[in-house]
Write a protein that binds this DNA or RNA. Structure first.
Lengths: 154, 154
DNA sequence: CGAATACTATACACAAAAGTAAAGATTTAT
DNA sequence: ATAAATCTTTACTTTTGTGTATAGTATTCG
């Protein structure tokens, strides 16, 4: 389970925008030098975020990017979903069907339930963390989330 | 955030072993035909699991693979950790440092805290789910885990 | 022993993701 | 208008991950 490069750099750009909120927009050269990537690559990242309607762009002399909403109203889930694949997508079984036409586990597909249940759980967590929480370095947020198993393992 | 092929097929093999537990060992040809992959690829998967000491192998006529422990004593976290990269590894910052020598966020590295906190949280969850839970299709396990935010978003 | 069965290891072909290059389109200031 | 600054798009190269092919080693059975 890997964090993709798009998720990594994309989230960084969102954090940068959250911090600059109120101090004008951020340009691609600023993203690029700030994160140590090329300008076209920064452009690719911001284009993705723009298509997800998380940021808006302005061209020309005083152009640049801004958040479309307040950082407190953008969840970590929205950001990651726009940048990468969800843990379990509808195409999952088709992708990992091996050399068979359809998934060999069509009936009683335990593995599918695993990923689906897991993704739902992760989604619940990521939805409860906002970009503002992250920008302010409030990482205790994860520790404040409680995980408890009601039933005992056998 | 993507589930890798190794994680997908590797977990499937572990599930198969959990179900065959007590009914003798499982051979590579059995894994291969059961999951729709080639025999050498099944071998690659089981070799990884073997190096992680999750399974043991026997050669020769009546050879095959078995779990080294009871399915109830193997956590989902152990399995996924052995097959793929953790969400946040120690090499993370070195990997995503862009064209700079070191991570541009050495001081006040918010992004690092995000992934670290997130990984810790996921780890807590995956640790509480055992291979036996999965093999028995007890997927309610994820729904039985509670997620609550103590503080309010601003 | 020798043949069959099964695991093991190395090297290779293919596909997807990461990141770059180059040319184009839009806005603003002069 | 023109030039400078900025976003946008397409195509390309490099790297990484996926899966296969091939040859080798160990064990059992007749």
């Amino acid at each position: 389970m890997k964090v993709t490069a798009l998720e990594e750099y994309g989230l960084r750009c969102m954090l940068r925008l959250a911090r600059s909120s109120g101090h004008g927009s951020v340009t691609l050269p600023e993203f690029a030098s700030g994160e140590g990537v090329s300008i076209p690559y920064a452009g690719k990242l911001l284009t993705i975020l723009k298509k997800a309607r998380l940021v808006k762009a302005a061209r020309g002399r005083h152009g640049g990017y801004e958040l479309t909403r307040l950082a407190g109203q953008i969840s970590l889930k929205e950001i990651l979903d726009s940048l990468g694949n969800p843990v379990f997508s509808s195409s999952h079984c088709a992708k990992y069907s091996g050399e068979n036409e359809i998934c060999v586990h069509t009936d009683n597909c335990t593995i599918r339930s695993v990923w689906r249940g897991f993704e739902g759980f992760i989604g619940d967590v990521l939805e409860k963390v906002s970009l503002a929480d992250l920008a302010e370095g409030k990482m205790e947020i994860f520790h404040e989330l409680k995980v408890e198993k009601k039933t005992n393992a056998r």
